[in-house]
Design a protein around this nucleic acid. Structure first.
Length: 426
DNA sequence: AGTGGTAGCTCCGTGCCAGC
DNA sequence: GCTGGCACGGAGCTACCACT
């Protein structure tokens, strides 16, 4: 039996060799000389019909496009779609101070999310589904580009490039590390122009970590700040029957072998939800920095927002947030402790040494927590506070006896276990 | 599994200030 | 003017993490 026949026998239903097959979209298994792979010759029009898409033609061939529209009055969890629209303004630059200012007006913000054949990287990994989303008259328009065979990749990449044409700002989740490098590798592999080179890119992952890492870690159990965790936490979205990410490449390979597009429908839906959630989470973050402390639910929110403001150089707003978290008697000791610590640092940088000393003293006076348990974070912060206070007493107060007492206390506390300061998690 | 952005750490140079 | 100490910030390094 030759190789083609053997492969054909593998993809046929068991026990029915040579049986007629009416699987939608399915055709013969053929060798693709460009890629060196065996694939079913897939009827693209039929796949488009199964998935509710359409076929677009360009200079490189035919690409499959699936459009879906989420009207503005529809809800994604708690969030109305129309309220998820993000303006490309100061909010985004507070979240990512490195984001350049826009150099044009009235252009499009585009959300992007890929499904790929794996995570291993390199030229062998292919983006088989490119999901794009943008706001249009208050509604969220999603356009997905599906790769129906490896030989159709240039047509797909060209169609995606056309879609990106009017885009001035790209929004992704971990896209700086994953989505954009993958797409650039594919364009480069085919020696095609790279349309994202001049597009500003906002990666929501890093601001999300700054804002919600503590809360997501408490909720997730695995300590992650995944998009799926945030959509549940912030938007109250619960996915029913969602495809796990690990399963996605396998479903695509099955489609390539069989031509049956039906198992891909949940993958398309997964990708669409990712895009809508990305828009909602981004909108949530922008609202938080625009409206400031009043939008914070608790001390942990206020502390995280303070750090975002501080990084963005908005120091007055940062101080307000730290003060709010520091004054919250009901907050977790780690949250309060870190807020007071950051308040003291901020005051010292402003050369307001007396005010800083008040905060160092406040940190020392904090109770360690319920049941007398020592906090792993508060301990090191207190040591830093003792050290700063000792310096203050010696060099500015000229209170040498006070400085000596504090130094002895510091030496005494340092006899305990050496714990590194990592003022992050509550 | 591979990749790359980010936070936090240490080290070191620099500016500022006070004391002599 | 010199010296010493504090405080800050940049460079370089490491560890972590999210994507399918």
């Amino acid at each position: 039996m030759d190789l083609t026949s053997r492969l054909r026998s593998i993809v046929r239903p068991s026990g029915q060799p040579g049986a007629a097959d009416d699987t939608p979209g399915r055709r013969e298994l053929t060798y693709e000389p460009d890629t060196g792979r065996y694939e079913a010759t897939i009827d693209v029009d039929r796949v488009a019909n199964v998935l509710g898409g359409r076929v677009v033609a360009n200079a490189f061939g035919r690409a499959l496009v699936i459009d879906r529209r989420y009207e503005s009055d529809r809800y994604h969890g708690q969030w109305r779609i129309g309220d998820c629209e993000v303006c490309d303004g100061d909010g985004l630059r507070l979240l990512d101070p490195a984001l350049p200012s826009p150099d044009g007006i009235g252009e499009r913000t585009l959300f992007i999310d890929l499904e790929t054949t794996g995570l291993s990287g390199g030229a062998g990994m292919v983006a088989f589904l490119v999901g794009c989303g943008w706001f249009d008259m208050g509604a969220f328009q999603v356009r997905q580009f599906l790769l129906t065979s490896y030989s159709a990749e240039r047509a797909l990449l060209s169609a995606v490039a056309d879609c990106l044409e009017p885009t001035s700002l790209l929004v992704s989740y971990n896209g700086k590390t994953f989505d954009v490098p993958v797409m650039e590798t594919r364009w480069m592999f085919h020696r095609m122009p790279m349309p994202l080179e001049s597009v500003r890119h906002f990666d929501m992952l890093h601001p999300a970590r700054r804002l919600w890492r503590t809360r997501a870690a408490a909720d997730d159990g695995e300590g992650g700040c995944r998009l799926s965790t945030l959509e549940r936490l912030l938007c109250d979205v619960t996915r029913v029957g969602d495809v796990p990410g690990l399963e996605i490449p396998a479903r695509y390979f099955r489609f390539l072998r069989s031509g049956d597009a039906r198992p891909l429908e949940p993958v398309l839906e997964h990708n669409r939800i990712d895009l809508v959630s990305l828009a909602a989470v981004t909108a949530h973050a922008v609202r938080l920095v625009q409206e400031g402390i009043d939008r914070c639910r608790d001390a942990a929110d206020a502390l995280a927002l303070g750090k975002v403001f501080e990084k963005a150089g908005s120091l007055e707003r940062a101080m307000t947030c730290f003060e709010r978290a520091a004054d919250d008697q009901g907050a977790h000791v780690n949250v309060r402790g870190e807020a007071i610590y950051r308040l003291a640092l901020r005051l010292r940088r402003d050369r307001r040494f007396d005010a800083a000393a008040v905060q160092w003293r406040r940190l020392l006076d904090m109770k360690q927590g319920r049941f007398g348990r020592r906090s792993a974070l508060l301990g090191p912060l207190r040591q830093l506070a003792v050290e700063a206070l000792a310096i203050h007493h010696e060099h500015r107060e000229r209170d040498y006896e006070g400085a000596r007492e504090l130094t002895l206390r510091l030496l005494d506390e340092r006899d305990g276990p050496d714990v590194r300061v990592r003022p992050e998690r509550a």
